[in-house]
Design a protein around this nucleic acid. Structure first.
Lengths: 319, 319
DNA sequence: CGCCTTTATGCTCATTATGAGCATTATGGG
DNA sequence: CCCATAATGCTCATAATGAGCATAAAGGCG
């Protein structure tokens, strides 16, 4: 968009000016497919966990949504309960100067045997972001390694103003000194680490723990996790990750897996039935270890009954 | 994405398979630029209000954000305070079977003389969505025309199940029979009207009031309005639309203009200063008609102090 | 000048939402 | 029968939210 003041961008001129752009750009779709299995949030990967499933943009389907949905259902043998566009990355490629347009999607499903030549596999997303799992308290990794190294990076900054800014960002995104941990800042934390040269994608030397991915796939994954962590608080999307019937504790564990933190059990239950999100199936599950738990199912009707509802998480410090 | 089960989408194969796709797709950017002037939410349009500024995707800038920002600043002579990606539409064009990729952005700024050969002009967004302005109560248009015609459309449906679904959607998206109006459902309402054939974009006969736009620009605008209405409730973005100093009533009017509804004055003030979003400039404005109002400025520091803050609107039925 | 209109501000109150605990109830396993 | 493990039921204190009432400060006007 180099248009000067007299070169208004307009649909009418798009066709004629577009030739160069269309030839210079490559388009691909990238999917962040999430499932929760055994209290772990998992993401579908390929290439031995080094990439998200993605590919060229070509489809007989009328919309991207429909194309993606069809593809995922073939891959996972499960219907894709929920799908949402994440972000379109269209930055000029540093190497080739070619423009790569990457349209990313977030999809929620249930885990199944994925098949394909690229060895698709479900992996816990905390493999890529170990510092994001606070379910057992603050990860030791943070105080032991990440924060000191971030501080070192900030302090090494010559310019005083920039140094103060960096310190400020570290404090807020990682919830230090009095501030609280905000589980939604997944992307900001990753980008800070990237900027500080502490991830393999940015540097070769001495990265912080956490498996890397090809291209900017870890950034896309961070975007997906952040979006999902925000979304579960006001939309009943967790249910797309659950079996048809489940106990309230199973539901709670799924939420905790996604949020990376514990919630207060009784308050969680209060909230769930206040909103009328579930109904009893009439059966109970005896496999819980203690008193048998009632089984519930999601009241899918409410998706149409109310357009926007809340499933706010009652967040707590302890379990 | 016609990939069968054994044709995993992968980055590695993207380049080779991509040729056809790249040639078949045209890429353009579309901007929803918003300002608030004289208690009206306004959007920058071209072509006598029939289109949003948009154009081919070609830029010397490294990222789309940067390119868009530079372009808008040249056009509006104002810095673009806030910019965010809205959505990427990439549906197969009904006419040409060519794929048109349209990446849309939402930008907040302040109104200025826009110049250009396409006659850019700021227009109230309620020109395009007259039913979305509830500041003076429910628009008469709704009960008089829209709802009856939607009901007629639903009732004309032969299939009983589909008819019930349509009625249900009408009730919830328009907040009928006991439900309350949800100002965030801008897109859903527009799409319902589109489906019912009540907008000029979908049909030639007897559309409902509300100016149409070329292509799917009114849909993009609806997306932008919806996003902004949601955002002002938890992010202090309104300030990007304000002059450097303002009275609390001016701030409130801006929020009301965007939300399309009135808020409770005292509660609004309580909330604003609870969050510490503003500070007094020390001056007062005498042009308010009554008692002079203190002038405030946005405490821009808080954008870094806290990563996520709330500017929840205290919504009320009356002013 | 005193009254009225208009807007700015300060405060109170009822209700609801949220964060934390305590207590009791079922089951299966020593 | 005692225990550990969960599932559930309830209570309480505090914060957040929706509505009003009351007072203060200007300008316009008879």
């Amino acid at each position: 968009m180099d248009a000067g003041p007299d070169r208004t961008l307009s649909p009418g001129r798009a066709a004629s000016l577009n030739t160069e752009a269309a030839n210079a750009a490559a388009i691909e779709l990238t999917a962040v497919l999430v499932a929760v299995t055994g209290e772990e949030p998992r993401v579908l990967t390929i290439q031995d966990g080094r990439a998200l499933p993605s590919g060229p943009f070509e489809s007989a389907h009328r919309t991207l949504h429909m194309g993606l949905r069809a593809w995922v259902e073939v891959q996972t043998h499960h219907s894709l309960g929920y799908i949402e566009q994440l972000y379109t990355f269209a930055d000029r490629d540093r190497a080739s100067d070619r423009r790569l347009i990457s349209i990313s999607y977030l999809g929620l499903t249930r885990e199944a045997r994925a098949t394909g030549e690229e060895a698709p596999a479900w992996r816990s997303w905390y493999r890529y972001f170990p510092w994001e799992d606070w379910r057992a308290g603050a990860p030791a990794l943070l105080a032991a390694e990440i924060v000191p190294r971030l501080h070192a990076w900030a302090t090494a900054c010559a310019d005083g103003k920039a140094r103060a800014d960096r310190l400020q960002r570290i404090e807020t995104t990682f919830g230090l000194t009095g501030r609280t941990w905000n589980e939604e800042l997944v992307l900001q934390r990753y980008e800070l680490l990237y900027e500080a040269g502490l991830v393999p994608e940015a540097t070769a030397s001495q990265p912080v723990p956490g498996a890397p991915m090809m291209h900017d796939h870890r950034r896309i994954l961070a975007t997906g996790i952040a979006r999902l962590r925000a979304k579960i608080k006001y939309r009943p999307v967790v249910f797309e990750l659950m079996a048809p019937s489940f106990t309230l504790l199973q539901l709670q564990r799924a939420v905790e897996a996604l949020a990376g933190r514990r919630v207060h059990k009784q308050n969680f239950r209060r909230l769930i039935d206040q909103r009328g999100l579930v109904e009893e199936t009439g059966e109970v599950s005896a496999e819980t270890g203690g008193r048998p738990a009632k089984l519930f199912r999601f009241r899918r009707e409410i998706l149409i009954e109310r357009a926007v509802i809340g499933t706010k998480l009652p967040l707590a410090r302890s379990g």
